[in-house]
C-alpha cells in the first residue's frame, strides 16, 4: 500500500497548486477589504471557459491567456464598482450575501453562454506525462506549480516594491490612516477586485487542461481555494500557497492510504483541528487574527 506514496504526494502537490492559485485570489481581496468574495470561484470558471472560447476562435494559448486575464479582471472591477462600493458602509454579512448573489448570477451567465457540457482545453505544452521519482506527473501539473510560483513572486514584488502595492498594504493595515495619507481607498478596492479577477482567470486558464471547463466548476474549486486561504491565514499569499499544498496533499494521502469515500471529510477534520490549534496557541503559524 505504501508503494503508492510517491504518487499520492505528486498528485497532491499538483492539486494543491490548483487550490493555492485559487486561494491567492481570496487573499488579495480579503487582506485589503476584509470581504470574503464568494464569487472568486466563478472568476476561475470564467477564466477556464474564456480560454475555451478564444482557443475555438483560433487564438494561440499565450494570446488567449492574456485576453482571458484582462476580461475577468474587468469583471472583477465591474463587480466592485457596481455592487460592492454602494455597500461600503454596510455590515460584512450584507456584502457576503452580495457576493453570493454575484456568484449565482455569474454561474447562471456561464450556463447561458456555454451550456452544461464540459469542454476540453488544450494543454500548454502537450506530451506524454513525465516520470519523476517513481510518480507520474502530467506536464500541465508542472505548469500549475510554475505559474503558482510566478504569481507568488509577482505579488511579492508588487506589494513590497511598488507604490500601488504599498498603498494597498497600507489600506489593509488601516484604511483610515491610509486615507489621511492621501491614498484613494476607492481605487485600492477597485484594484484589489480587478487583481483577484485576474488571479482567478490565471487559475482557471492553467487548471482547465487538467480539470476541464464547466459552468459549475466554480463552487467546489472556490470552496477548496477558500479553505486553502484560511488554512494559511487569509491575509498572507505565502500562507495561501502553503495552505493549498497542505489541503491537496492531505486529500490525496487520505484517498490513497485511508479511504477514498471519506477523503474530503478527512481534509475537513484536519481543517477544524487546525482552527482549534490556532486558538489554543498550539499552531506554529498564525491563521486569521481574532477580531
Amino acid at each position: 500500500m505504501l508503494d503508492g506514496v510517491p504518487q499520492y504526494l505528486a498528485s497532491g502537490l499538483v492539486v494543491g497548486g490548483i487550490y493555492a492559485l485559487i486561494g491567492l485570489g481570496f487573499v488579495i481581496v480579503f487582506s485589503v477589504t476584509r470581504i470574503v468574495n464568494f464569487a472568486q470561484g466563478e472568476f476561475v470558471m470564467l477564466g477556464a471557459l474564456l480560454m475555451v472560447t478564444w482557443q475555438a476562435r483560433g487564438l494561440g494559448t499565450p494570446a488567449a491567456f492574456v485576453l482571458t486575464v484582462l476580461v475577468v479582471a474587468a469583471v472583477g472591477a465591474v463587480l466592485e464598482r457596481v455592487a460592492v462600493r454602494p455597500l461600503r458602509r454596510a455590515s460584512g454579512l450584507s456584502v457576503l450575501i452580495l457576493t453570493i448573489g454575484a456568484a449565482i448570477a455569474l454561474r447562471g451567465a456561464g450556463l447561458v453562454v456555454w451550456g452544461t457540457d464540459p469542454f476540453a482545453v488544450a494543454a500548454f505544452s502537450p506530451g506524454p506525462p513525465l516520470r519523476i521519482a517513481g510518480a507520474v506527473v502530467v506536464r500541465q501539473g508542472l505548469w500549475v506549480l510554475g505559474v503558482a510560483a510566478v504569481v507568488f513572486a509577482l505579488l511579492w514584488w508588487f506589494f513590497t516594491r511598488t507604490y500601488a502595492g504599498t498603498a494597498v498594504r497600507a489600506c489593509a493595515v488601516n484604511p483610515r490612516a491610509a486615507r489621511l495619507m492621501g491614498i484613494r481607498v476607492d481605487r485600492v478596492f477597485l484594484l484589489a477586485f480587478a487583481l483577484s479577477g485576474a488571479l482567478g482567470a490565471v487559475a482557471g486558464a492553467v487548471v482547465a487542461p487538467i480539470t476541464y471547463a464547466t459552468y459549475d466548476m466554480g463552487l467546489m474549486l472556490g470552496l477548496k481555494g477558500f479553505v486553502a486561504a484560511v488554512l494559511g491565514g487569509l491575509v498572507s499569499p505565502a500562507g495561501a500557497i502553503a495552505g493549498g499544498f497542505l489541503l491537496g496533499v492531505l486529500e490525496s494521502m487520505a484517498a490513497g492510504l485511508l479511504s477514498s469515500a471519506y477523503k474530503d471529510a478527512v481534509a475537513f477534520i484536519v481543517l477544524i483541528a487546525v482552527c482549534l490549534a490556532q486558538v489554543t496557541g498550539r499552531l506554529p503559524w498564525r491563521m486569521v487574527e481574532e477580531e
Binding site: L87, A90, L98, G101, A102, I104, G108
Partner: peptide, 17 residues
C-alpha cells in the same frame, strides 16, 4: 438563476439591513 442572483444583489444593495 441569473435573474435570481441579480435580484439577490439588488436586494442587498438597497436593503442591506
Amino acid at each position: 438563476i441569473v435573474v435570481f442572483g441579480l435580484i439577490l444583489m439588488v436586494f442587498m444593495i438597497f436593503l442591506p439591513a
